[in-house]
Design a binder for these strands. Structure first.
Length: 319
DNA sequence: AATCCGGGGGG
DNA sequence: CCCCCAGGATT
């Protein structure tokens, strides 16, 4: 869960998760749907699928006990050098280094690493430094201390060098250029595309579709979602729905635009609208057709059986 | 080596 | 608006 996700975000998810899946057997035997459900809102859903696979591998190949050999750990899906080193150093007191966001910042400043830490050569340098520094005694404490230092003192902006216990050895601090490190090349820009999600409500059911393998949220359930037409939105949308779902619909005026979240999706539209929407939404009026401009969404991963019969047409097309 | 996954924190 | 987050897999 902590891979590319902030600690504060993870904590409540982690608590619920370990309560629901206390050991490898429980997790391995749980349906993937249930695991994804527990992951809902965290993003990077591949991690949940891989964790599920890893639990099954641990049960099958390691008798349900987490392997202690670093190479065996690395073979588990979703576990790379950082995660393997972190688990084995912290839990089993094995001497392995860790390199992640915090230690990258600390080490790159401590040694004024001039190379781009996003590049392979920069990473090699950092792993080498971390490997040389981690002690045989209490390596897990050392690694956590390094990460904690990066999280509390050696922050990305406005680092607290005055209270840093190792600032007297810090090359970047000596150079008065702490904030110039770590060196990174600018990220690729992210482009946004306008999409329209459609909520089709019939009695207490709602039409969902499963995201295809090559689109975002692959394999997960979502409202039917389409690129927003340039013009003639209503008629173009109706045509897309007819072609995609085999449903003949007529769109009236589309009065509401709002961001939507389906994390707490229940089944009726008013709940969806009232949980996370922003803007002027009247939840009391049960509109049949609502246009949603997708700005931010959470995945929808409901137990969709209740509405699945409305999906047979589109499902057949996908399979 | 570059790209993708993704919601959310915080300036 | 921006950059980044206790990374890893895929291409």
């Amino acid at each position: 869960m902590l891979q590319q996700t902030q600690v504060a975000t993870v904590v409540p998810y982690f608590s619920r998760f370990v309560e629901q899946f206390p050991d490898a057997h429980t997790l391995a035997q749980a349906p993937l749907e249930q695991v994804l459900r527990a992951w809902e809102g965290l993003g990077y859903y591949r991690r949940a699928r891989q964790l599920h696979q890893a639990a099954q591998m641990i049960v099958r190949d390691h008798g349900g006990e987490f392997p202690q050999d670093i190479d065996a750990v690395r073979r588990l899906p979703g576990i790379g050098r950082y995660t393997a080193g972190a688990v084995l150093s912290i839990a089993l007191n094995q001497r392995h280094p860790v390199v992640e966001a915090n230690t990258i910042r600390v080490l790159s400043r401590l040694f004024a690493v001039a190379i781009d830490v996003g590049k392979e050569s920069g990473r090699r340098t950092l792993w080498s430094l971390a490997e040389q520094l981690v002690p045989a005694a209490r390596p897990g404490d050392f690694n956590q201390a390094l990460m904690e230092l990066g999280g509390t003192i050696c922050k990305r902006r406005d680092p607290n060098c005055e209270n840093c216990p190792i600032s007297r050895w810090c090359r970047a601090a000596q150079l008065r250029q702490v904030e110039r490190f770590p060196r990174k090349s600018p990220r690729a820009k992210v482009t946004f595309q306008q999409e329209v999600a459609v909520v089709v409500q019939r009695q207490r059911s709602v039409v969902l579709r499963r995201c295809g393998p090559d689109e975002r949220w692959a394999g997960m359930w979502d409202f039917p979602r389409y690129r927003r037409p340039e013009r003639n939105v209503e008629s173009a949308l109706a045509e897309m729905i007819r072609a995609d779902l085999g449903l003949s619909v007529q769109l009236h005026s589309l009065p509401w635009r709002f961001k939507y979240s389906v994390t707490r999706y229940r089944i009726d539209l008013t709940t969806v609208a009232s949980t996370r929407c922003r803007g002027r939404i009247k939840t009391s009026s049960p509109a049949k057709w609502v246009k949603i401009e997708e700005m931010e969404t959470f995945p929808l991963n409901v137990s969709a059986r209740r509405v699945a019969r409305q999906l047979r047409l589109s499902q057949r097309k996908l399979n």
